[in-house]
Computed example of a mutant assay.
Amino acid sequence: MPPTRLVTLLGKAVRQQRHLREMTQGQLAEAAGLSQAAVARIENGDRAPSIAALEALLAAMDVQLVVGVEPLDAHLDARIDELAARPIGDRVSELGLDRLLDRLPDLPQVITGSTAALLQGAPVPVDALQIAVRWQDSTVFSRWLDKNLGQRWDARWGVFGGIWLEPEEPGEHRWLTRHGEIRAVMCDELPETIEVRHGDRTYRVVPLVELELIEPHAGELLRRYRDRRLASDG
């Protein structure tokens, strides 16, 4: 049975908090008194955690769960508003992009999707590094994924792992690696890019105007943000 939205959100929250603390699943499991396999299933949304297990995991990271209800999609608007109120430098640094990008030196790629929108100042939620990769470089990409313990997203079961890594094989182009999650757009040629700079680093990103045309999810987030700005200005 596919995971519910709540189970997926709980798993994502645990994973994000663990990554922020640079803990491994094994370290978190030991601190919470659970098995590493249980932590993996919870983070992947493969298992609905008991309240006791969830509280133990969060307490091990010095955080707690706050429960509330809201109209559907209000969470997304609230997230956009919250991101808009924060400095872009903070939003970029908390993603840990540099650490992951530094481990992709031999793979020709450019940043696209919501990640590219964020780097250009748009306050859109970003869950993973999104890159465009050429089909001709898929062998290099596959080798990198294998070397870095990549697991591919299995949409049928709602978990990472259990299917072929290679982009040519059927499945979403989404992988979990030991350095973080990567989502790829496979293409014949890399899209045109511009350069943006944050701190002492320059990033090659797909421009916002192109994102709205070629990236449905990022385009929808950008339109949602623009509509909220127009509503508030009016």
Rank of each mutant, 00 (worst) to 15 (best):
V126H: 02
A53R: 03
G96M: 12
A59L: 05
G11T: 10
L149F: 13
L83Y: 10
L20Q: 11
D146F: 12
P105R: 08
W135D: 03
E30V: 12
R143Q: 09
E195W: 07
E82Y: 04
L10E: 06
V92C: 00
L72W: 05
I131G: 01
V185T: 05
D154N: 15
L65D: 06
S138R: 12
A132P: 07
L208V: 06
V39L: 10
E166T: 11
V66D: 04
E43Q: 04
P207L: 06
M23Q: 13
G150L: 11
H173T: 11
A56M: 09
R226K: 08
T8W: 15
D200C: 00
R103W: 06
D81T: 05
V110Y: 07
D62Y: 11
G11K: 11
S138Y: 03
I194N: 12
D102R: 04
T193A: 08
A48P: 00
L221A: 03
A85F: 04
P125A: 05
L28A: 01
V67S: 06
R21C: 03
L104S: 05
P191R: 01
R86H: 13
L104I: 08
V67N: 09
G219C: 03
R152K: 08
E166M: 00
M61C: 06
P2I: 10
P207Q: 08
S50G: 15
L230F: 10
Q120I: 04
V92G: 03
I182T: 04
T112L: 04
G113Y: 11
A128D: 13
G96H: 07
R15Q: 14
P71R: 03
I111H: 03
A117F: 10
P207A: 09
E215T: 07
T139I: 02
H19K: 13
V67L: 14
R201G: 00
L34A: 13
G33A: 04
R91M: 07
P167K: 05
R197Y: 10
A128T: 05
G219S: 06
A52I: 01
H179F: 14
L165K: 11
A52W: 11
M186S: 01
Q16S: 09
E82H: 14
R21G: 02
E168C: 01
A218G: 10
H179V: 08
Q109K: 10
A48W: 02
A29C: 10
D200K: 15
L104P: 04
R91D: 10
A56K: 09
V63C: 05
V66T: 00
R91G: 02
R99N: 12
L72A: 12
G150C: 07
P170T: 07
L58C: 10
Q16D: 11
G234I: 00
R99V: 06
